[in-house]
Computed example of a mutant assay.
Amino acid sequence: MTDVENRCRLVLILPPGDDEQILSDRLEAALAGGDVATVIVPQYDRNDGQFQSLAERLVPIIQNAGAAALLSGDSRVAGRAKADGLHMQSSLQDLEDAITKFTPKMIVGAGGATERHKALEIGELQPDYIFFGKFDGDIKPEPHPKNLALAEWWASMVEIPCIVMGGNEVASVPPAAETGAEFVALRDAVFNHADGPERAVAEANRLLDEKAPRFDA
């Protein structure tokens, strides 16, 4: 393992917005700031055509930076845009169908794990990862305590990797990493950072280098 692969890594959640140029510029800046494992592009309230257009623009930017491009929304868009995978937020049946249809060709991860029982039900389907939190859940500087508790519980007993949603400040990264989670997700902490997305990602990686626990090789 490299040093980066031996500790918690960043996942970026693209924020909402109507201007593709602004979103792509902000994303390119963030990806220039340092290591990013994955970028999740949510559909938000875009129609399928708008989502398709945005995905086709952003997926190559993400992949050229060495990160995995995951789409959360219409699964048909992911295939057409040649994304690396899907983030599923829907029912267990839809998740099972997506895993059956797309793995191992594509990454299929799952959100919606709001408590332990639901997390275990999701885990039984063997997604590639489980996500604790909501994309728009970064309403406070620190991560939500419930998500931290779920991630710590999960990481201590289940091999499926987990992502925990951080807060709206970069300083929320170490507490998320200390749960043992393989990934911490940031949205506003990066894309609304006062010094810009590039500086935010650089600072997040500096904190992870300094403070994140190391996994066994």
Rank of each mutant, 00 (worst) to 15 (best):
M1G: 14
V4C: 09
R7P: 00
C8K: 11
R9T: 00
L10R: 01
L10N: 07
L10Q: 04
L10D: 05
V11P: 00
P15A: 05
P15F: 10
P15H: 08
D18Y: 04
E20V: 09
E20Q: 02
E20Y: 10
L23I: 12
S24F: 07
E28F: 06
A29I: 04
A30I: 02
A30D: 08
L31D: 04
L31Y: 01
A32L: 14
G34M: 03
D35W: 09
V36D: 00
V36L: 02
I40G: 03
V41D: 07
D45L: 07
D45Q: 06
D48I: 12
G49N: 01
G49E: 12
S53Q: 12
L54H: 03
L54R: 02
A55H: 06
A55N: 06
E56R: 15
R57I: 00
L58C: 15
V59S: 10
I61R: 14
Q63M: 06
N64K: 15
A65Q: 05
A68G: 03
A69M: 12
A69V: 05
L70C: 13
S72D: 15
V77N: 11
R80S: 11
K82S: 14
D84H: 15
L86K: 07
H87P: 00
M88C: 15
Q89I: 13
S91L: 08
L92R: 15
L92D: 14
Q93A: 13
A98Q: 12
A98K: 13
K101F: 04
K101D: 05
F102Q: 15
P104R: 14
V108Y: 13
G109H: 01
T114R: 04
R116Y: 03
K118D: 04
K118A: 11
I122T: 07
E124Q: 09
P127C: 10
Y129G: 04
Y129W: 15
Y129P: 03
F131M: 09
F132N: 02
K134C: 10
D138A: 11
I139Y: 06
P141N: 13
E142Q: 05
E142C: 03
P143E: 06
P143K: 06
H144L: 05
P145Q: 03
P145Y: 09
L148Q: 01
L148C: 02
E152R: 14
E152N: 02
W154D: 09
S156V: 09
V158S: 02
V158A: 01
I160V: 13
C162D: 01
C162T: 04
V164F: 01
M165W: 03
G167W: 07
N168T: 04
N168G: 00
E169R: 15
E169A: 05
S172R: 09
S172I: 10
P174Y: 06
P174C: 11
P175M: 01
E178V: 00
A181H: 05
E182H: 15
E182I: 01
L186W: 04
D188E: 09
A189R: 07
A189G: 04
V190R: 06
V190D: 00
N192Y: 07
H193E: 06
G196N: 08
E203M: 11
L207P: 08
L208T: 11
L208F: 01
D209R: 12
D209H: 06
D209L: 11
E210N: 10
A212L: 08
A212M: 03
A212R: 04
F215I: 09
D216Q: 14
D216P: 00
A217S: 13
